[in-house]
Design a protein around this nucleic acid. Structure first.
Lengths: 95, 95
DNA sequence: ATAGCTTGGTTTATAATATAAACCAAATGG
DNA sequence: CCATTTGGTTTATATTATAAACCAAGCTAT
């Protein structure tokens, strides 16, 4: 039987962010914004949700000239992503 | 760059319905309801959306003792599903 | 130095979506 | 018959995604 798709990951922008972070293992706000083509506001909100869920860690650095928000995926986030993918396979089997 | 995920398919219940129909090629309302664990109302709405999009065809048969709503995927729907999966692969290597 | 633009965001409002609750007609069961 | 079940649809509500408006700090030309 088809299992539940983690609603936190089953969202285009959040999935994109996780997808980027899983291969890069660290990326800042500007990079994520460029790669995902998201608006800053949308990205900010979705990053917050992923952070609250413990799927990513965020470091805000104000020491440089310009603020820099850097994100990295957590172990919990990586596991959630992998498990999301497993569930997804159930939906797209036979392809 | 990550492509847009067809919002019509990027929905748990609609994806489940399409996933079931792609392998079975015909299924009725009751069957889909059981397999997806959806409420009748939710399923009804999502079936409407898939129909309006031309992703599935619906046949309502009232000739038997009880009404029977039977669904089958269209060529357009099959293509959309396959293309959705391709886009998804961009997000998830090894899917 | 300061008025105005850019950068890197956050907060808040709105649009869109998913979901459940309420409802309906026909069939069935006691 | 009257109540319940079956097979749905319609409508209301909760949740989500998204954009618009906003803000502070830094740069730029005047």
């Amino acid at each position: 039987m088809l299992k539940e798709l983690d609603p936190l990951l089953h969202s285009q922008l959040r999935l994109a962010v996780m997808s980027l972070l899983i291969s890069v293992d660290e990326a800042d706000f500007v990079y994520l914004k460029e790669k995902t083509n998201a608006t800053a506001g949308n990205l900010s909100v979705q990053i917050d949700k992923l952070t609250t869920a413990g799927y990513i860690d965020v470091q805000k650095d104000l020491s440089g000239k310009r603020p820099r928000t850097s994100c990295k995926i957590t172990v919990v986030g990586k596991k959630a992503f992998e498990s999301y993918v497993e569930v997804l396979r159930g939906y797209i089997i036979n392809l």
